[in-house]
């Protein structure tokens, strides 16, 4: 390979952190993957099996778009479900399409692989000490982004001036791109935490609290769920979501052990099914008004979790709304159901 150009599929706002890490670690070009658009979805579904889960199609679409932009090394992750085999199939599909590239899987079978070993094998020009140092910064950055976004989801619905939260959020992400050191990052975080707390909000006495659980990609990539969180915020609903990268990478291990001790379920069910069931229980016990469960179509672990979530919610008398997101889901249908859900929660509260 002449000049190495690295790219990666997208998810939510983590692009900032990933680009930061890669551009500081490797001495080669990093290509920004284009934002997910309708075109991405179209390309992705064109070359994917129809019954594969939607994240496969979106990531494949992004990969093709970045390959067309000139990338020749792509990072992909694999999770604890079918997602674990994604990279193999995607590699095969892309090779059949005639692309000459290298696909590197960072997490396989739910376990982190030895990154340094992989980098050595693949001859990527990287700096070992820098990789560790900037890796630490990136981890911290992801944690900060998650903390701020959690705050945004809960408080955005009360904003007095429209878009004030989103604007500040964008500013923060832009500033994080220019992080110089761990200390600098910490300063940025504290500065924006203060600014977010200063945003004028009007908190009504009775407001609706909704918890969102479900499949991770659909939850975290707003394009795939039709900006569900923004829609809810616009309706004046405060949103709680547990699943984020911090949770998946660092908290999940301990939480799952704790969950298994509670004897509601004996076994793990793959991916985040177990977590979602316990989070549903948590939401029910903490007086949330409703629960929204989202998954990509054909997501097997979540399909297994749905009846259990339904039963738990039924016992606590909390309504659940199930969504199955795909390219073939009609946006109008989603919005109608969401509106009706909101009306229902509002009527119940009275």
């Amino acid at each position: 390979m002449s000049s190495i150009k690295i790219s990666y599929p997208l998810m939510g706002n983590y692009e900032v952190a990933i680009f930061y890490l890669l551009s500081h670690t490797f001495k080669c070009d990093i290509i920004h993957p284009p934002k997910i658009t309708t075109r991405t979805a179209e390309i992705g579904s064109k070359y994917s099996p129809d019954f594969v889960c939607a994240p496969f199609k979106y990531t494949l679409g992004t990969m093709i778009e970045s390959l067309d932009k000139g990338a020749n090394v792509i990072f992909q992750m694999g999770g604890g479900c079918r997602y674990g085999y994604y990279h193999e199939l995607q590699r095969k599909i892309l090779e059949d399409l005639g692309y000459d590239f290298k696909l590197i899987n960072l997490i396989s079978g739910g376990k982190q692989v030895n990154l340094l070993k992989i980098f050595k094998e693949t001859n990527l020009p990287y700096h070992k000490i820098k990789a560790i140092y900037y890796g630490l910064i990136t981890i911290k950055m992801v944690k900060y982004i998650d903390k701020i976004e959690d705050y945004i989801r809960i408080h955005r619905c009360f904003e007095v001036k429209k878009n004030s939260f989103n604007q500040l959020h964008q500013e923060m992400l832009n500033e994080m791109k220019k992080t110089k050191s761990l200390f600098h990052l910490k300063l940025i975080y504290h500065k924006y935490r203060r600014l977010f707390k200063k945003i004028k909000i009007k908190k009504p006495k009775n407001y609706i609290k909704v918890g969102i659980v479900g499949e991770l990609y659909t939850l975290m990539e707003p394009f795939t769920n039709y900006q569900m969180e923004q829609l809810l915020s616009d309706m004046g609903v405060s949103v709680k979501r547990f699943t984020d990268v911090t949770y998946l990478l660092f908290k999940k291990k301990y939480k799952v052990k704790k969950f298994l001790k509670q004897h509601l379920l004996k076994y793990r069910m793959g991916a985040d099914a177990l977590d979602n069931i316990y989070h549903t229980k948590y939401l029910c016990e903490h007086n949330y008004d409703g629960i929204i469960h989202m998954k990509a179509s054909f997501c097997t672990p979540e399909i297994a979790a749905m009846p259990i979530i339904n039963q738990i919610a039924h016992e606590y008398k909390v309504p659940v709304l199930f969504f199955s997101m795909d390219m073939n889901t009609s946006e109008t249908g989603v919005k109608t159901r969401l509106e009706a859900f909101y009306d229902m929660l509002e009527m119940r509260q009275k």
């Binding site: 008398k317 199955s324 009706a340 229902m344 119940r348």
Partner: peptide, 10 residues
């Protein structure tokens, strides 16, 4: 008189 649950064909 209050909606507690609903479903729609998908």
């Amino acid at each position: 008189g209050i909606i507690v649950d609903y479903a729609m064909n998908t």
